[in-house]
C-alpha cells in the first residue's frame, strides 16, 4: 500500500516538476511568473492530439507536440512579453502587469482552444496501458503509462540539467538570468538567450501535457490544476532554482498522493496551501531560493 502510494506520488510529482521547471525557466530569464504556461501546454497537447488522431501514432505526436510547445514559448516571448516589458512598466499597474497580462493570455489561448476544439472532453490515447501492473493477484494503481511519465520526465530533466551544467548555451542561460547586464557586456546576446529559455519552458510544459493527458481527458482547462501544483512546487523550491523545482514537484506529488490515500482528495490543495504557507513563513523565498537581492 505504502509503495503503491509512493509510486503514484512520484508519477504525479514528475509532472509537477516539469510544470515547475517551465515556470522557473521563465522566471529566471524574465522575472515573470508565466500564468499562460498551462494554456501553452494545453494548446500544444491539442495539437499533439490532432496529430495522433490523423497519424494513429502517439509516438509521432509526442515529439511534434514538444516542438510546438517550444515554438509557442518562443513566440509568446517575442510577440507578447517584449511588448509588455516595453510598456506597462510604471504606475500602480507595473507590479501586477506581468501577472495580469499572462493571465489574459491564458484566457485568450483557452478560449481559442475552446473555439476550435470545443469544450467536450477528448481522449488523447497512448498505446501504453493505463491499467496498473499486476503481481499475481495484486494489482497496483501504477500503470505502464505512469512508468512512462516518470521515465520521460526524468529524461527531460536530465537533458535540461546537462544543458545547463555542461554546455555553452547553458552557461549563457545561467549568466543571463543571474546578471543580464554583465552577461551582455561579456558578449552574450541576452535577449536571444532569453528566448531560448522561453522555448525550453514551453517544451517542458508540452511534455507534461502530452504524457499526462492519456491518463485522463483533454479539455481547455484540463491542465489548470496541474499548473497550480507546479506553481506551488516552484514556489516551495524557490522560483530561482531548477533543482528546487524538481524537488518541490516530487515532494508535493508524493505529499498529495498520501493525502489522497489517507485523508481524501478534496483537501489536497488546502493541505498544499498550508505546506506552502509553512515553507514561506520559514523561508520567504522558498527552500532553495536566494535570500539576498542579487542586484545589491
Amino acid at each position: 500500500m505504502f509503495i503503491d502510494t509512493l509510486l503514484i506520488g512520484i508519477s504525479s510529482g514528475a509532472i509537477y516538476s516539469l510544470m515547475a521547471l517551465a515556470l522557473v525557466l521563465v522566471w529566471r530569464s524574465t522575472r515573470v511568473v508565466n500564468f499562460a504556461q498551462s494554456g501553452q501546454a494545453v494548446l500544444s497537447t491539442y495539437i499533439g492530439y490532432e496529430i495522433s488522431v490523423s497519424t494513429h501514432n502517439y509516438w509521432i505526436s509526442l515529439p511534434l507536440a514538444i516542438l510546438v510547445g517550444a515554438i509557442l514559448g518562443s513566440l509568446v516571448d517575442l510577440l507578447f512579453m517584449r511588448l509588455l516589458m516595453g510598456r506597462a512598466n510604471s504606475g500602480p499597474i507595473a507590479e501586477i502587469a506581468p501577472v495580469i497580462a499572462t493571465l489574459g493570455l491564458l484566457g485568450l489561448i483557452q478560449s481559442f482552444v475552446g473555439l476550435i476544439w470545443g469544450n467536450a472532453f477528448l481522449h488523447y490515447a497512448s498505446p501504453l496501458s493505463g491499467k496498473g501492473f499486476s503481481f499475481g493477484t495484486h494489482t497496483i494503481p501504477f500503470s505502464p503509462q505512469n512508468l512512462f511519465i516518470v521515465v520521460a520526465s526524468a529524461v527531460v530533466l536530465a537533458i535540461f540539467g546537462a544543458i545547463f551544467k555542461y554546455t555553452d548555451l547553458g552557461l549563457a542561460l545561467r549568466a543571463s538570468s543571474f546578471q543580464p547586464e554583465i552577461a551582455q557586456l561579456a558578449g552574450v546576446r541576452v535577449s536571444r538567450v532569453r528566448n531560448i529559455g522561453w522555448a525550453f519552458a514551453g517544451s517542458a510544459g508540452a511534455v507534461a501535457g502530452a504524457v499526462i493527458t492519456p491518463t485522463s481527458t483533454l479539455s481547455p482547462n484540463s491542465l489548470d490544476l496541474l499548473f497550480v501544483s507546479g506553481f506551488i512546487a516552484a514556489v516551495i523550491g524557490g522560483l530561482d532554482s531548477l533543482v528546487g523545482a524538481v524537488i518541490g514537484g516530487l515532494v508535493l506529488g508524493v505529499g498529495f498522493a498520501f493525502i489522497l490515500q489517507y485523508i481524501g482528495g478534496s483537501v489536497t490543495f488546502l493541505v498544499g496551501f498550508i505546506i506552502l504557507m509553512a515553507v514561506l513563513l520559514a523561508r520567504p523565498r522558498g527552500i532553495f531560493g536566494h535570500k539576498v537581492n542579487r542586484r545589491a
Binding site: 501577472v99 483537501v267 490543495f269 498544499g272 514561506l280
Partner: peptide, 12 residues
C-alpha cells in the same frame, strides 16, 4: 510568492 500562496488558497 504572494500570488502563488493566494492562488493555492483560491483552489484549496
Amino acid at each position: 510568492y504572494l500570488a502563488g500562496t493566494t492562488l493555492a488558497l483560491a483552489v484549496g
